[in-house]
Design a binder for these strands. Structure first.
Lengths: 355, 355
DNA sequence: GAACCTGTTGTTAGCGCTAGCGATAGCGCT
DNA sequence: AGCGCTATCGCTAGCGCTAACAACAGGTTC
């Protein structure tokens, strides 16, 4: 590497500095120069103001506002090997249930200086893997995923990430790491039980359970079990396939259910969105709900209690899932252990007018 | 490492390397070592595979999958001074109108390798500034904001960011940079016009216009102008204050309107969410809509056309706003100029049963 | 055969920040 | 005086990656 050392001190090769596109923004050392201190001290003022003397801190803070410094988090992440971000993977963000979870999660973590990335998988498992991979490039300090069923590739990535992971909105005997959720199967079974108590015997399940929504599939399982145990009859199900979770799809599911099982006395949907669409269609067509047909949803969206007739549904503590997940993650990101890493937040059948 | 160099050249201080917490993940040079090439070549395979010979590329790609390499984007951003991210600031993500915009925006940009950060301001302008500041720390390559009215601090930050900015969902004579939106005032005036044509004369405006929702305030302005011009009467308005945009608040607004202006023959709301809550309350109370009272919303959510009676509203091309914004930003981020930087996407009054 | 490409790979020097020390001064205690 | 402690601040060496150039082989042009 170094050429002849010989007698005199060999000069380093006189290369001129490379040209780099000048950075557009103020850096730590700009602020340091303005305040007459070292860059390290400015960094300390930004991250832990009390570790610097009052006088210095005042001078640095003045320089900070005078220069309009905005820290470069990429550099910070690289140097500290911490990103102070947490990634959340949800199927859909406009599905308001997840929005509540994400909002609560985000608020709780923001209070501790963490930012949240939200990625949507559009209910496509293979897409989940792709989104997760690109998120891991940002080296989040923690991960939240909706669901407990994942592709092998996703599991590998989650394991290799080397950070705490919370699975939510489901239940599993064998979670990846942390778990905050409830049993979708038990919740659906509870709804069947409710309908049976209300005298219904020919209960049809309508959902989107074959195309990438494992939660809907788990609810279907719960329905199956409950129908077998409580009614001893054959299950009646209709599936929306890959259709989006919209009220339009709900109407289509209703049509399908009435066509295939014309004698149904109740239809339970895998989402309030479906149920709301179906309910309004019934009102419009003059089908008596619950007289002729009982309808039930899942999720307890705000809409459910405002509809006429008000919609029976399963309430899930969405916001609590977000808060609790944040709490567990924070504990683990602090390096502490979590005493009870798997939390069942339960569910509640909310009986209203539609049944 | 190197042994002593004879004569008497003073050795550089023999400091051992500092201990750094070992990085948990595979780096470029790990892959390079595995493939027997330089780190730079691996980087090239990742970012521009065709710039490397077939044989080398195959070897590197094998090493890539064998090691399970996940690039560290913080390091990449720092070195290249490009983040390949775009930040979006919206008032609320669960308000489905914005969700449509964000979704379309995100999809269009993802196709070009950009990731989107979404930040919510909760309709609080001072919060917008704070969120924006923390987002700028990630040095996004572009910015999308909802609205055209901003605090001075926000304007300073937007200007200093040095990246293209799109304002959306409003209209302005003096935009910061790019603009994709429509006139909320004109849209509200068009709704008044529609109601007047339907024979309504005592039209009340109900919204959340005093507490940080500039779009609602603009709609109120449009209402004021139209009532003055078309009816020549005094405006009638009720305000939700800082209440959240929920159906519950919609019911409260209806109560307020009927209490303060009992002779109202129409109520127009600043959001479909409010209108939907009010409409269902009317159905429940037996108030004839539109016989006794016409109701109208804003946004044309899916819900609007499913309700019974179906809700008259103003349709705004939410998704188109997102797509067009992405397109303009992409052009600017490529370094090209945008020929028409301000785009009016318009609006459309959708007359349905509720009026 | 010199000069000039073109395609492919390697080398070097940072990007802006922070961890891990050192260095120094001031203080209390023996 | 000597020791140890704390508070405060600076120095250095990276974090993992990429821009910019250098180096070279093989071909083409005149």
């Amino acid at each position: 590497m170094t050429p002849d050392i010989v007698s005199g001190v060999s000069q380093p090769p006189p290369r001129r500095p490379r040209k780099r596109s000048a950075t557009r923004s103020v850096t730590l050392s700009d602020v340091a120069a303005a305040a007459g201190v070292s860059a390290q001290t400015v960094s300390r003022v930004v991250r832990d103001p009390l570790s610097v003397s009052d006088e210095t801190r005042a001078r640095v803070q003045a320089a900070l506002t005078a220069t309009g410094y905005v820290p470069n988090l990429a550099a910070s992440n690289l140097a500290s090997n911490r990103s102070r971000t947490v990634a959340a993977l949800v199927p859909q963000i406009n599905a308001s249930v997840f929005a509540d979870t994400v909002h609560a999660f985000s608020t709780a973590l923001a209070a501790h200086g963490y930012q949240i990335f939200v990625g949507t998988t559009d209910y496509r498992p293979e897409h989940e893997e792709e989104v997760l991979r690109s998120f891991l490039g940002r080296r989040p300090d923690g991960l939240l995923v909706v669901g407990t069923r994942h592709t092998p590739g996703t599991l590998t990535l989650l394991g290799a990430a080397g950070v705490p992971v919370v699975e939510t909105w489901g239940w599993s005997e064998d979670p990846v790491d942390l778990l905050v959720g409830f049993s979708n199967a038990a919740a659906a079974a509870a709804m069947v039980d409710h309908l049976v108590r209300r005298g219904r015997r020919r209960i049809t399940f309508a959902g989107r359970h074959t195309s990438g929504d494992p939660r809907a599939a788990e609810r279907l399982d719960g329905y199956h079990g409950a129908v077998r145990d409580l009614l001893g009859s054959e299950p009646r199900t209709v599936d929306a396939g890959p259709e989006p979770v919209t009220m339009d799809t709900g109407v289509a599911l209703l049509d399908l259910a009435l066509e295939r099982y014309p004698d149904s006395d109740a239809v339970m949907f895998s989402s309030d969105v479906f149920a709301a669409g179906a309910l309004q269609a019934c009102v419009r067509r003059g089908i008596d709900v619950p007289g002729t047909l009982a309808l039930a949803g899942f999720g307890d969206f705000e809409l459910a209690r405002h509809l006429v007739p008000a919609l029976t549904t399963v309430a899930v503590p969405s916001a609590q899932i977000g808060e609790l997940s944040a709490e567990l993650l924070l504990t683990r990101m602090r390096g502490a252990a979590v005493d009870v890493p798997h939390r069942d937040v339960g569910y509640r059948v909310v009986a209203r007018e539609s049944t």
